[in-house]
Design a protein around this nucleic acid. Structure first.
Lengths: 227, 227
DNA sequence: ACGATGCTTCGCTGCCGCGCGAATCGTCGC
DNA sequence: GCGACGATTCGCGCGGCAGCGAAGCATCGT
């Protein structure tokens, strides 16, 4: 008996074999932005025929890495949950030499981007830091939790969202910043609220998030370093 | 050109195939405590002949997951760096159902354990939280950094260590706590200092770390919640 | 110098699984 | 209903690789 809760060799090997095929890896990477995509599109993304893709998708589904949503004759696949997403992010990080991280270019992507439906990048890190600095976010037993004071502060600056007293966040390591930001259900909730408040909008082409002038002003008022 | 810094499908698949074999997975898991082990021992741990183990170890070495230290006729393998270790930790986390995480039993292991040569578990999380709460730890551009005030505070409570002005830490997600603690070179340095100060000692059998009464008192004085 | 020990390399066998085309199932549009 | 379309299942060929035993190489002990 050793390390209850720890993964065993067979579970790790099973997980590895799910990643071990370039076609499956491509599918997973195509889904890291949190979108749901039909099987045919994933087949094209992976560069294999629909028949082959179907077999791969079945394995990923059985392996618990994907979730399925059936709509008419389409079958939409997405990452099973945000733990799978952050696993993929951390794997990405693991394979990149540390000195290569602060990439030139891609300034927009470094600035603010979508990381499985929550805000990441410099702005995401700064937002999370501000929440912590003001004691609006605390680490409870079940994850990161927004304090009442935080809810009030965000609301007073025009950010409206549902009751988050039972919504928990997770710390998510950022692959460009190598610093923590707010993920999990709480991160998704707050990011969605920013969309609705017009603070942020998505780029149609990639994972870049574009803050509005109003959004930046509001964030700045909340103590977020938007420089 | 997309997502500079992100892993591509072939890199992810290569990484996956390294994990995909139970024998290799067993070897990696046997090394997650940060030890170096000779090839023969790893062969026994994996349940394969030395010949087979040698081939596996070569692949892991070429893949950048292991490092090698030759001493006489022994060849000692260890995890290449702590990014590999935290990658393995995050993979473990990904495969464990959320509701199963707060495991009964293994109280000692949940309490404090070795995570690739730094302190993890409840005590690790609480220690990191205290550092952040007192503004002794800040997130600089190159990683987590200890402030002068933090160095002084720790020193005044009897913790002695080398100059850490250029030693950076990384946030490391904990698989029992699901919360951040301090890893990376800085985490290793501080944990080593705790060993030398007699605050902690290792269990000979597993990854459990046992705090001394004096260590708990010192940590408590530093604002760490040791309850 | 000699055998014992730890580890690697070589040659071989067997098996797993990827990829495709063809066929099948289910749904949508007319 | 009927064909068109998305997706899955089936059967087959082929490549890669895990596993072992035997042999080779380096080092330690005496």
């Amino acid at each position: 008996m050793h390390d209850a809760g720890a993964i065993n060799r067979y579970q790790l090997a099973e997980l590895g074999s799910l990643l071990a095929e370039p076609a499956r890896a491509a599918m997973l990477l195509a889904l890291t932005d949190g979108t749901s995509r039909p099987a045919g599109e994933l087949a094209r993304a992976a560069g294999v025929t629909p028949a082959t893709a179907s077999a791969h998708l079945r394995r990923l589904l059985d392996g618990g890495l994907l979730a399925l949503h059936v709509q008419g004759r389409h079958r939409y696949y997405r990452l099973a949950d945000d733990r799978v997403a952050s696993m993929l992010e951390s794997l990405s990080l693991a394979r990149i030499p540390a000195h290569a991280l602060p990439t030139k270019g891609n300034a927009q992507l470094r600035r603010a981007r979508y990381c499985y439906r929550h805000l990441a990048g410099e702005l995401g890190v700064a937002f999370c830091a501000a929440l912590l600095r003001n004691d609006w976010l605390r680490t409870g037993t079940r994850g990161l939790q927004l304090e009442i004071t935080g809810v009030d502060a965000l609301a007073s600056h025009g950010l409206q969202f549902v009751d988050v007293s039972r919504v928990y966040g997770r710390s998510c390591l950022d692959w460009t910043e190598r610093r923590m930001h707010l993920g999990g259900p709480l991160g998704v909730t707050l990011t969605s609220a920013m969309f609705e408040a017009g603070w942020l909008r998505r780029s149609p082409r990639n994972r870049v998030l574009i803050p509005s002038a109003d959004g930046l002003r509001r964030l700045s008022e909340l103590g977020v370093d938007v420089s």
